[in-house]
């Protein structure tokens, strides 16, 4: 899967869970940029991504991502 395609799908998940209609995320986006993205909503985002891409993440992955780009990369790697 393409990076842009994954990013678009994650963006929809972020919009849904964080309740921010016009949110646009990029690979550079970090939690510092979005007030609503904290460890509570992170878990909800993680599970939504797992369901959408039919994958499971490890605890290390879930706690390790520094920005959206790293999330996208993990998803692409797991979908190979």
């Amino acid at each position: 899967m393409e990076q842009t395609e994954v990013l678009k799908q994650i963006n929809d998940i972020f919009i849904d869970i964080l309740d921010i209609d016009n949110l646009v995320i990029t690979t550079e986006t970090t939690a510092n940029d979005i007030d609503e993205w904290d460890s509570l909503t992170h878990i909800q985002i993680v599970v939504a991504m797992e369901k959408k891409f039919k994958i499971r993440f490890t605890t290390a992955e879930i706690q390790g991502w520094k920005n959206v780009g790293e999330m996208v990369n993990t998803i692409i790697a797991k979908n190979k």
């Binding site: 939690a31 510092n32 993205w37 904290d38 460890s39 509570l40 992170h42 706690q63």
Partner: peptide, 11 residues
């Protein structure tokens, strides 16, 4: 060590 978690705690 865990910025996402700290953010939630502080909120």
């Amino acid at each position: 060590l865990s910025p996402l978690h700290a953010k939630k705690l502080k909120k």
